[in-house]
């Protein structure tokens, strides 16, 4: 099964094919993951990443909160959680301004899934972290600075 999928990926060159196969019942639906948004993940700067996500210049919202430490002991693992009280949330994205590619992760939330996700990201240096939320068709965001102390001592 997995092997076949890989073949499909190579020859079909896209997940459109995968989606079709899933629709036709050829592969299990849980394997037909949504297409990876390469354009957004490789966009580079925060501005370009927001553009690639179709977010433009989103307004800031006080209803979005970022749960991250003020200081991360190690940039290799920075816990970042995003939650919001905004209604009709469709997606949440985490962007790290100073990373080579700002977009770190995006989450699509089907109805019934709470607007509250947590993950852990790498940060090359101290940076602003942005939470981008699409709710009721509109993009909004919040920001928090996270300082990174890269332990240079003690191996």
């Amino acid at each position: 099964m997995i092997k076949q999928r890989r073949e499909v990926l190579k020859t079909g060159g896209g997940l459109g094919v995968l989606g079709l196969l899933a629709a036709a019942g050829v592969i299990k639906p849980e394997l037909a993951l949504a297409a990876w948004n390469e354009g957004a993940f490789k966009a580079g700067t925060l501005e370009k990443s927001l553009a690639a996500l179709g977010a433009g210049k989103p307004a800031t919202s006080g209803d979005i909160s970022i749960n991250a430490p003020d200081i991360a002991e190690n940039g290799a693992v920075v816990p970042i959680g995003v939650s919001t009280t905004l209604p009709k949330v469709e997606s949440i994205s985490i962007l790290i301004e100073k990373n080579p590619d700002a977009l770190a992760a995006t989450f699509k939330l089907p109805e019934g899934t709470e607007a509250n996700v947590q993950t852990r990201c790498k940060m090359g240096q101290t940076s602003n972290v942005y939470a981008l939320v699409k709710a009721d068709g509109k993009f909004l965001m919040a920001m928090k600075e996270v300082k990174v102390t890269l332990g240079g001592c003690g191996g």
Partner: peptide
């Protein structure tokens, strides 16, 4: 849940 990750995770 449907998530997409970049290498920064």
């Amino acid at each position: 849940l449907d998530a997409q990750f970049g290498p920064a995770v």
